[in-house]
């Protein structure tokens, strides 16, 4: 009988109990990263640096070495690792809280530094692990356990658009926002994640993919409703697009 491992190859790991909640978008994003590593044949020299939050579980399903970094600091940790082993492939896998709240400082400087590392930001618009609190990417009016009447932009500001902040940075080689709200979007996200890793392997610079992902538990919605919320509400604010792709310029040359 063919097993899933036969189908997905060596990179995907199944020996660990699955930690993501039913319907969580993380599972899809994690699989896309695994497929990329498998397809590029880089498993043996890949380092996963994960943040604190649900994204921290991601490496359990990957047969690659990993560092569970301090909350928000994984881009800095990844840079230190890349300095030590420049030929290795290093990526961070962080949530929106880890990337854009406590770790905005590190992610922005990592982007601006332009060192070839890849950062995946899984944006589900809440702090999922701690039970659905407002994060910097919570959309206006969204109800969370810390915004009982919805996010009030007068107090908490508007949602943070992270890739837009990186757009003008010369060191950024690949920059995209994708989503996993439907099959078509997942296919696009797969392509972006793969290109982000390719940019790193070719040494073109920093690569970043934000992936909009539903959190049914944090949103207190049924799975289909959570996907609908992400597709309608979240995507109305966070527009999926490829901002930069140095591979195209590279191919032209």
């Amino acid at each position: 009988m063919q097993t899933l491992a036969d189908y997905y190859g060596e990179t995907l790991k199944f020996d660990k109990l699955y930690n993501y909640c039913p319907g969580c978008g993380h599972g899809i994003v994690t699989r896309l990263v695994v497929e990329t590593i498998e397809a590029l044949g880089i498993r043996e020299k890949t380092m996963s640096v994960v943040g604190i939050g649900c994204g921290g579980f991601s490496h359990h399903y990957m047969n690659v070495d990993a560092i569970e970094a301090i909350h928000g600091r994984s881009p800095a940790t990844a840079i230190g690792y890349k300095v030590a082993l420049p030929d290795h492939v290093v990526f961070t896998y962080q949530g929106d809280g880890d990337t854009s709240a406590i770790g905005l400082h590190e992610i922005m400087h990592a982007a601006n530094r332009g060192m070839p590392i890849t950062c995946i930001m899984v944006n589900n618009s809440v702090f999922g692990m701690t039970g659905g609190q407002m994060s910097p990417t919570t959309i206006p009016g969204q109800v969370t356990t810390t915004t009982a009447t919805g996010r009030d932009v007068d107090i908490h500001g508007h949602p943070l658009l992270v890739p837009e902040m990186m757009r003008a940075m010369n060191g950024v080689a690949y920059l995209a926002r994708e989503s996993v709200v439907d099959a078509k979007s997942i296919n696009k996200a797969a392509k972006s994640i793969r290109k982000a890793f390719e940019c790193q392997i070719k040494g073109l610079g920093f690569s970043f993919v934000e992936v909009i992902s539903p959190c049914p538990t944090g949103l207190h919605l049924k799975v289909p409703d959570a996907y609908e919320f992400a597709a309608k509400e979240t995507l109305s604010y966070f527009k999926p697009q490829v901002f930069k792709n140095a591979l195209e310029n590279n191919d032209e040359v």
Partner: peptide
């Protein structure tokens, strides 16, 4: 070798941790 100037001591110390993970003494 290399001196890497980071954006803060937070980043410095975490980069140092990442460097150490590679088995090198920074």
């Amino acid at each position: 070798g290399r001196m890497v100037q980071m954006e803060s001591e937070l980043a410095v110390s975490n980069a140092l941790a990442g460097y150490a993970c590679a088995g090198k003494l920074g």
